[in-house]
Design a protein around this nucleic acid. Structure first.
Lengths: 148, 148
DNA sequence: TATTGTTATACTCTATAACTATA
DNA sequence: TATAGTTATAGAGTATAACAATA
């Protein structure tokens, strides 16, 4: 049950839900960053590409709300996706832009999605006897948090 | 299943394990930070207090290995716990120090542990019909990641 | 030689406040 | 008045490299 079995210390925290969530999330995010690095894209950028791919014409504020990212922090993300030629910004009504994937953007999108699927399967394979669907359902319940 | 039901967007990511882990971890950590703020302590500091409480005489390098924190990043954490008078550093062998909780440190430790237990129960209560023990077991499997 | 503790530093992520221009 | 996009900035958290003292 201890996360670091070789440690000479008693581990009084690895049974805690918050601690386990943090460590598991960090492990999977670090793995995903490495998995996606050959695509030249970060986990957040890949996620934004996937959202635009599923919602052609959405705005960056739409994406911010969906992903829980502050509006201000979307700016450098969209700027980079635009600079790479992966995302096109079409003026909508003067104050917002409709976002669309370019041809190159679709290519990166598809590559990134492939690797994300591969990673998902790899991590699901670690769940010896555990139900991956039940894990996802439980996590989704925790996201609806009494904060904000 | 969508995390933000009010969004006009199709949500193509909230079924992904990595995404759910990240959102759930962020939600619980933000809640914990708020829960512990009345103790004047951060989640990481509280975790370190708990580790020292369970392992009197351990070194900060021991704690770093257990919690997956870099040695260099332990310095300001231990410095703050020492400056508050919660942790005492007793010279061991010239290059390392044995860490112990002071009386005041035990008080903060107990308060923080109470609130962490309360938070744990509150979040476990969100798991409608889900098995909290199974969730923890599944998360622990994910922490052992093929990286590094 | 390897380890502990430390300094300095840099990079990412996140958060706020304020501004503009548009609706 | 509210929203979209932006700028600037500040604070965490995390990473590396290097060094001194010690084992």
């Amino acid at each position: 049950m201890d996360i670091i079995p070789a440690s000479p210390l008693i581990d009084p925290v690895s049974h805690r839900l918050g601690y386990l969530l943090r460590r598991a999330s960090a492990a999977m995010m670090a793995d995903l960053a490495h998995t996606l690095s050959s695509c030249g894209i970060s986990p957040v950028e890949a996620t934004v590409l996937v959202v635009i791919g599923a919602n052609p014409g959405c705005t960056q504020s739409d994406i911010a709300r969906l992903l829980g990212i502050k509006r201000a922090n979307m700016v450098p993300i969209i700027a980079r996706l635009g600079a790479e030629g992966w995302v096109e910004r079409r003026p909508m009504n003067g104050r917002s832009h409709a976002l669309h994937l370019t041809e190159a953007g679709m290519g990166v999108h598809n590559q990134a999605e492939l690797r994300m699927n591969e990673q998902e399967e790899r991590f699901s394979g670690l769940l010896q006897g555990q139900d991956a669907a039940a894990l996802r359902a439980a996590l989704a319940l925790l996201v609806r948090t009494p904060e904000e």
